[in-house]
């Protein structure tokens, strides 16, 4: 399998006033195309920080990150935004749907950044909703959906523009066991059937079991105890 994400000697330093906090220390990591990687670790260990770097939401203080052979660590904000739009889908703990928009319109959002016409956008969003099993809820607002359903809408939104990479920050952190299993099953399907590369941060060992392997982060460094499930 070829490498999709290549992280070389990446450090991230946050400045709090005069105080500098190094959150990630010289991280090296390769993520293969088609991988489903779980990132675990104690709170504050830098999981979200690393995920944000992989997803191009933030840039490292030092080191190189390439995704699909293209360097993203030195892109400016505008270029990163463009890159994210076509390469990454994001899934958050609290779904982060726009509350005023229907499920359908939420899923269509990323397509507004493409050249697709209105009819095609509607069609693609409908397909994505169907894929997550919510075709019958297209017209519902987020408040009219359960947490699990909202997260599935968020997943539909993340995959609608067909990105190669999905990054998920505790996608089941706010869900009950059953909904969590639905969401994890869905992610697994996306990984196995549709070839999406997934990086998922989680606190939950049961959730990590759905991934093909797990990496542990502690105090900003990867710990060598990767184990295949």
């Amino acid at each position: 399998m070829s490498t999709l994400v290549e992280i070389r000697n990446v450090s991230k330093v946050y400045e709090r006033g005069k105080q500098k906090v190094e959150v990630l220390h010289h991280v090296d990591l390769n993520i293969a195309q088609g991988d489903f990687l779980a990132l675990m670790g104690p709170s504050g260990s830098g999981k979200t920080t690393l995920l944000n770097l992989i997803g191009g939401l933030d840039s490292p203080t030092q080191g190189q990150i390439s995704v699909g052979g293209a360097r993203i660590d030195n892109l400016n904000q505008g270029a990163l935004a463009k890159w994210r739009a076509s390469n990454v889908g994001f899934i958050f703990q609290f779904y982060n749907l726009l509350p005023m928009l229907s499920a359908q319109k939420n899923v269509e959002l990323p397509l507004l950044l493409t050249k697709l016409g209105a009819a095609q956008r509607r069609k693609n969003a409908a397909i994505a909703l169907q894929l997550v099993g919510l075709a019958d809820r297209a017209g519902h607002k987020p408040t009219e959906l359960s947490g699990g359903q909202q997260q599935r809408v968020a997943i539909a939104r993340a995959i609608v523009s067909d990105p190669t990479l999905l990054v998920c920050d505790e996608p089941t952190g706010d869900l009950d066991r059953q909904s969590a299993e639905d969401v994890l099953g869905l992610l697994q399907t996306l990984n196995r059937q549709h070839g999406k590369t997934i990086v998922m941060v989680t606190h939950d060992p049961k959730a990590a079991e759905y991934a093909s392997h797990t990496l542990h982060l502690d105090k900003g460094a990867l710990v060598e105890q990767a184990a295949h499930v």
Partner: peptide, 14 residues
């Protein structure tokens, strides 16, 4: 704030 952040995450430019 968080909704605007989501739009940006998705790739809407500044």
């Amino acid at each position: 704030t968080s909704e605007l952040a989501v739009l940006k995450t998705i790739g809407f430019s500044n």
